[in-house]
Design a protein around this nucleic acid. Structure first.
Lengths: 239, 239
DNA sequence: ACTATAATACTTGTATACAAGTATACCTAA
DNA sequence: TTAGGTATACTTGTATACAAGTATTATAGT
C-alpha cells in the first residue's frame, strides 16, 4: 500500500506520529471508510510495528475527532460535509479573533513573512507541486496565528492543524489535475488577506476570509474525486 | 503524598488518565512549580506504576499545554495570570459562538436541565461540598456547549475542560473556606445565563458571561492561597 | 430447529525489556 | 588549573509479555 502522506514532512516524527499522519490521510480521503473499526493489533501488523506506536497514533486521532475510542476497537468517524463546515467555522472564529489582536500589534515582520510565503506558493503552482503548495498554505495561516502569541488559540490551532493539512493536501492534489485555474483565485485571496493585515482593515479581512471559505465549498467534491482516484489505484495494484 | 484530584471522578479512568488528572492538579496548584522537569521514570516510580501509563499521562498534559515535551524530559509550563486570562478568552469565544447557535434551536430541554443543575449546586453550597459544586459548574457549561451539537466546538471544549475543571476546583475549595459569600453571586450569574438562553437574549448573555469572568479575576489569587495551604500541609506531613 | 453454555479468539491496559541517543561527571593529560 | 575525552547514568522510543475482560463461535442438550 502506497503512502498518502508526504514522507519528507515526517523527518523528525516518531513512528506513532507517522502512522497517525498516514491513517488521517486515509480516513479523510475515504480510503478507510467511516464506521470502520480499527484494531491495534491489526494496525500494528499492517504497518509492521509494535502496538506501542500504534497506540500513540490512535490517541492522537481520537483527540482530533477522527476516530471514537470504544470498548473494543476504534471506530472511524471521518469527515462529512457537516464536519468540514464545522472545521471552517472554528477557523473563521479563531482567525477573526487573531485578527483583532493583530490590529493592536506591529505586523510589519509578519506581512513580510507572508509575502515570502506567497512567492513560494507561486513557484509551487508553477511547478505543479501540490504538496509544497499545501505546506505553504497551512504555514501561511499558522504564521498569522502564531504571531498573535495567544497560547490557547495556538493550542486550538494545533488540534485543528493536522486535519486541515490533510484536507488541503488532498483537495490541492485533485485541483492541480482538474482545476488548475483555481490557483489564481486562491493566490488573490491570500494577497487580499495580507493586505487586510497590513492595513489593519477588518472588513477586508472578513471579505478575504469569506472568499477563502467560498473556495472551500468544492472541497467535499474534491475528496470524493480523490477517493475515486485512490480506489482506482488500489484496484490496479491488486490486479 | 495526598491526592488533590477527587477519586470518585475517576471511576472509569485508566491509570494514565488518573496520573494526568493528579499531575494537572499539582501543576495548576503550583505544587509542581513551572519550569520543573518531569521524567517518565521518576513519575513511574512516584506513582508506583510502569512507564506506559505515565507516557499516556504526559501526552495528555502536553496536548493541554500544561507541559512542553523536550529532548530530555517534559518541562512544566503551568498557569500564569496570562494563561488563565487566555483560557477565558477562548471560553468567551466558544460560548458566544454556541449561544448564536442556540438562538436558532429549541432550548426548553436545555433550560430545564440547567435549572436542575443549579439546584444541585445550591445543595452543594449548603453542604460546603466544593468538589460537587465544581463538578456541576463544569457540567453546567458543558451541557450548554454539547447542546449546540458542533463537533469541533465540542473538541475544543474537551481540550479546555480538564484545565478549567482543575482551576475551578482549586478556586472553589479556597472560596468555601475564605469567601463563602461569593457563591450567592456565582449562583445569580448562572441564573442570569439560563435566563439569557431561555429568552434568547444576546445582551443578557454577554452580561452574564462578563459577570462570570469578573468573578474569575480573583482566581490567580485563589491559586496562590491554595498553594500556601497545600505547601503548609506538605510540610506538616514531613514533620 | 433452537437455546444455553462452554471454549476460543480477540480486545485493551499495563508491565517489562531492550536499543539508541544525550547529558553529566569524572578522570587523564598537558 | 584547564581542556579534552571517556565512562556512566539517565533519557526517550519501540518491542514484547502478560493479565483481565469481552465478543463470537461452536457444541451439546432439549
Amino acid at each position: 500500500m502506497e503512502f498518502l502522506y508526504p514522507e519528507k514532512w515526517l523527518s523528525k516524527a516518531s513512528t506513532g506520529e507517522r502512522i497517525a499522519s498516514e491513517l488521517r490521510m486515509r480516513i479523510i480521503s475515504g480510503l478507510i471508510e467511516s464506521g470502520a473499526t480499527l484494531s491495534e493489533n491489526k494496525l500494528a501488523a499492517d504497518f509492521n510495528v509494535s502496538r506501542s506506536p500504534v497506540r500513540e497514533a490512535i490517541k492522537i486521532l481520537a483527540s482530533e475527532n477522527m476516530i471514537r475510542l470504544e470498548r473494543m476497537g476504534a471506530v472511524v468517524i471521518g469527515l462529512t460535509e457537516k464536519e468540514i463546515s464545522e472545521l471552517y467555522d472554528v477557523r473563521l472564529l479563531i482567525e477573526t479573533f487573531v485578527f483583532e489582536r493583530l490590529v493592536a500589534m506591529d505586523t510589519n515582520e509578519l506581512v513580510n513573512d507572508l509575502h515570502k510565503r506567497l512567492e513560494i506558493m507561486e513557484i509551487a503552482i508553477k511547478y505543479h507541486d501540490a504538496d509544497e503548495f499545501s505546506y505553504q498554505d497551512v504555514l501561511f495561516h499558522e504564521t498569522i496565528i502564531r504571531t498573535s502569541q495567544h497560547s490557547y488559540i495556538l493550542m486550538i490551532w494545533n488540534n485543528l492543524k493536522p486535519v486541515m493539512e490533510s484536507l488541503i493536501l488532498l483537495s490541492m492534489r485533485v485541483r492541480f489535475n482538474e482545476k488548475y485555474e483555481d490557483f489564481t483565485r486562491i493566490l488573490n485571496n491570500h494577497k487580499l488577506y495580507i493586505e487586510a493585515i497590513n492595513q489593519k482593515d477588518r472588513n477586508l479581512m472578513i471579505e478575504s476570509l469569506h472568499k477563502n471559505f467560498d473556495d472551500v465549498q468544492g472541497q467535499v467534491d474534491d475528496l470524493w474525486r480523490s477517493q475515486q482516484v485512490l480506489t482506482k489505484g488500489v484496484v490496479q495494484e491488486n490486479e
